[in-house]
Computed example of a mutant assay.
Amino acid sequence: MYLSLYNNSLNGIIPIEIGNLTILHSCLGYNNLTGPFLPQSSTFLHCKKLYWETTISLVISHPNIDYLPRLLHLNLVGIQLSGKIPSSLFKCKSLEHLELYDNHLEAETVPLEITNLTSLVYFSIPKTNISGEIPSFIGNMTSLEYIDLSYNNLRGEISSNIGNLPFLRDFFVLENKLSGQIPNLQPSLQGYGVADNYLVGEIPYSICNLSSPDSLYLSENRLDGKIPECLGNLTSSLSLVELQNNNFHGEIPKSFAQGCTLQSFRINNNQIEGSLPQSLSNCKELKVLDVGNNYLNDSFPYWLVNLDKLQVLILRSNRFYGRVDNSDVAVSFGRCVSSIFL
């Protein structure tokens, strides 16, 4: 049975009588329900997917949830969940997808028992008050493809063991208190987010080995060195690059790929020199270009007018020169760019 009471105005305690149903897929999110984590019954014995999202207020009070032997997907996002993660959760051997975003868990760090979930592919616990270091044992969970530990209080370095995960596609630890350098990146990565930490050092050369990256969030750190030239070639798949508010120097990569898929390119507030490469005109999907607060020295880039989808253009606080009062160019920019900061 598929039970969906999603997005109503229901309130009160989840009725225990629900246990008379054999549920395979439960979706109770976006209501005002309260009560224990799961009613004690055979209700969820065959359940494979639980989606209990936002505005449910639950307490993890039941000590055993290992009576969910077939559970594959557990989504408890923004439900004001409180208490400790019950150890019996880690007996759900079939679990592939675990998402606990935006709750108030009592966990000092990622529990070691997570390694018992040998089928886990998707592991997302951002904004859950976890602290401590990123444990190295995560690197032994070789089935993982997606990890999100963002918006917590994690400290220390990013474990190099993360590089042992052969199928990892997405890794996000945004807005923590991590330090040290960015470890080597495995070729399988598509999304990589370490913004808003205290990372230092250069972008590792292993970035050049990424096969089909989609997004790169490195902003708001203390990174330095040059932007790897290979980054231009990676724009055949990259849609978003955020390198702003670091200490990068040198020049922007010269060669942006033919068929460039970039939608947002932000390198503002660095120490970038040289010119704005005209190969950026290959990026026909570009919507946001922010190179402000650098040391770029170039004539005004009239050729950007050919980027029909450009909405935000920020060139301020550089060394651009030349006339900008060409009326035809001004009209053309006005059609496609909603915000221009020179």
Rank of each mutant, 00 (worst) to 15 (best):
V291P: 07
A257T: 09
I147H: 01
Q186I: 00
T54W: 04
T22K: 05
L95N: 01
E285N: 11
C47N: 10
E106M: 09
N161A: 12
N32T: 03
I203D: 15
N306G: 08
G132Q: 11
I14W: 02
N270Q: 04
I14T: 07
L243S: 07
Q244G: 11
K309A: 06
N209H: 05
I134V: 13
S332H: 06
L342V: 14
L81K: 00
I16S: 13
E202F: 03
P135F: 01
S4F: 10
S237P: 02
R335K: 12
D148I: 10
P15N: 01
N293I: 00
L189R: 00
F265P: 09
V59C: 10
S317V: 05
R323N: 11
T55M: 13
R335Q: 15
T43Q: 03
E251S: 13
L21W: 04
L71E: 05
C47H: 03
S236V: 09
S188V: 10
L112W: 11
L120T: 04
K254C: 04
V110W: 00
L223R: 00
L310F: 01
Q271H: 06
L71H: 04
N318P: 14
S338E: 08
H25A: 12
G225H: 04
T43V: 10
E99M: 13
S219C: 10
N129T: 13
H97T: 13
N31S: 15
L315D: 03
M1E: 14
L76F: 14
S237L: 03
S94W: 01
S299E: 07
I85S: 14
S42A: 08
S159M: 00
S332A: 15
S150A: 08
G201W: 06
N153D: 12
P39V: 15
I114S: 11
N161E: 15
G156P: 03
P111K: 00
G250D: 06
E157L: 05
R266S: 07
E96C: 04
S160L: 05
H46P: 01
I18P: 02
P277F: 13
I203K: 09
L112N: 05
P36F: 05
C230D: 06
S136P: 02
Y151I: 07
P86L: 14
N269L: 08
I147S: 04
L112T: 04
R169A: 13
M1T: 14
L144W: 00
E229C: 14
P69T: 05
N269G: 02
Y217G: 13
C92W: 03
L276M: 11
L234F: 02
H104Q: 14
S143N: 10
V77C: 11
